[in-house]
Each structure stands twice: as C-alpha cells, then as structure tokens.
C-alpha cells in the first residue's frame, strides 16, 4: 500500500503548474481545482495531501517535516539554507538572482556599498566572496525603488524578464545564480517513504526532459 505523501505547494501560478505535473505523475486531487478558500486538499485513494503555502514558507514546512516533499524556488533555498534534500530541478519558474543598479552606476571601491534586498543572506554571501564591504538594507518589496530614491547603491533581487528594471531605469550588473523551481524532500521522510518519493522524482524528471 502506498504511504500518504504530504506535499507543500507554493501558492500562485507556479504552484498550479507544479500541481499539474504531480497530477500527471499519478497524484491527482481534483478538489484542488475547486474555487474556494481551503488550503488543504486530500485524495485518500491516491494517498496524497496537498497544502497551499506561501512560496517562501515551503522550505520550512518540508524541513520541519509538516510536509514530506514540496516545490520551492532556488532563491528561497539559497536564502534560508534549509537542511533538506534537493532532488530535482523542475526547470520551470526560471529567472536569475542578480545585482542591479541605476544605468549610470559605477562602483566606488573606496566606499561601503549599500545593498537593498529581500535576500540578505544571498547578498551577504555574494559580497563576502568578493571581499566587498557592504551595508545591507533589508526590504520586503518594491526593491527597485531603493536606488532611485538614493536609499541604496545597488539591489540584489530576482530578475525574470528585466521589464521592471528597464521601466525604472535600472540594469543588471551581475547574475549571481540562475533560479528555478526545485523538488525538495524532508530528510527523514525520504527514508521512510523512499519508494513513493523516488517513483515521483523519476516521473517528474521524465516530464522535465520531455518539455
């Protein structure tokens, strides 16, 4: 008998895309498509339970074992460094973690660089590897405004198409890491639900290469 798999999915378009992949892989749960405010959906026949959670929280649910598996952006994994297995790159939700600044920006090495970001850990790690002295300004959204208002010299943020940057007269200076959605698993769940998780990984990997 299959063991119940608890799956944390990121709320939003990416999560819906991921659900379709899981459905194809033999874990359907039709009630998830109903329009309502429910957050947990279960299909006992297929031994699966889905939760919709905030994308940045998926890794926490998985690391703490509330979910056995989940799908999280690489940005979240780099930022929080959860103790999990990263079993597959789903090759969807692709974008870049990048440093961006005003078009006329020139780095002045004699001064501390002011960096505005939602991703303090990634920014700190990147500049530490460069030996650059920085001041991190942690913001929770609309990061692009920071250099325009003179709050920061640069920003470290996710860049998808670059349209927002362009419209705000900013440009990418450096790509720190490519980002995409990753299939992650709780370390203990992986031991005790090995067959279910491995079969799912194989199926998803196949779907990823087919696309």
């Amino acid at each position: 008998m299959k063991q119940m798999l608890n799956v944390a999915l990121p709320k939003g378009r990416l999560g819906e895309k991921v659900y379709d992949m899981f459905e194809k892989a033999g874990y359907p749960c039709p009630s998830i498509k109903e329009v309502n405010r429910k957050l947990i959906f279960e299909n006992e026949n297929c031994s699966v339970r889905y939760f919709w959670v905030k994308p940045s929280d998926v890794a926490i649910y998985v690391e703490r074992g509330a979910a056995d598996i989940g799908v999280a952006g690489k940005d979240i994994l780099l930022e929080y460094e959860p103790d999990i297995y990263e079993l597959l790159d789903l090759n969807i939700g692709k974008c870049n973690m990048a440093v961006a600044a005003k078009k006329d920006f020139r780095d002045d090495n004699s001064k501390t660089l002011r960096v505005a970001t939602k991703f303090s850990n990634i920014a700190a790690g990147y500049y530490l590897s460069k030996g650059r002295d920085i001041d991190i300004i942690h913001l929770n959204g609309s990061i692009e405004i920071a250099p325009i208002l003179g709050l920061s010299d640069v920003i470290v943020d996710i860049v998808e198409t670059g349209t927002t940057l362009k419209e705000n007269d900013l440009k990418v200076i450096k790509i720190i890491a490519p980002i995409s959605a990753r299939f992650i698993a709780n370390k203990a769940s992986y031991k005790f639900k090995f067959n279910e998780i491995e079969a799912l990984v194989k199926n998803l990997a196949q779907q990823t290469t087919e696309d």
């Binding site: 690391e63 703490r64 074992g65 103790d83 709780n186 370390k187 203990a188 769940s189 031991k191 005790f192």
Partner: peptide
C-alpha cells in the same frame, strides 16, 4: 540515525 516522526536525524 532517523526515526519515523522526527523531521531530522
């Protein structure tokens, strides 16, 4: 070592 029910080793 892992036991069922605990999220980490």
């Amino acid at each position: 070592g892992f036991i069922e029910g605990a999220p980490n080793s």
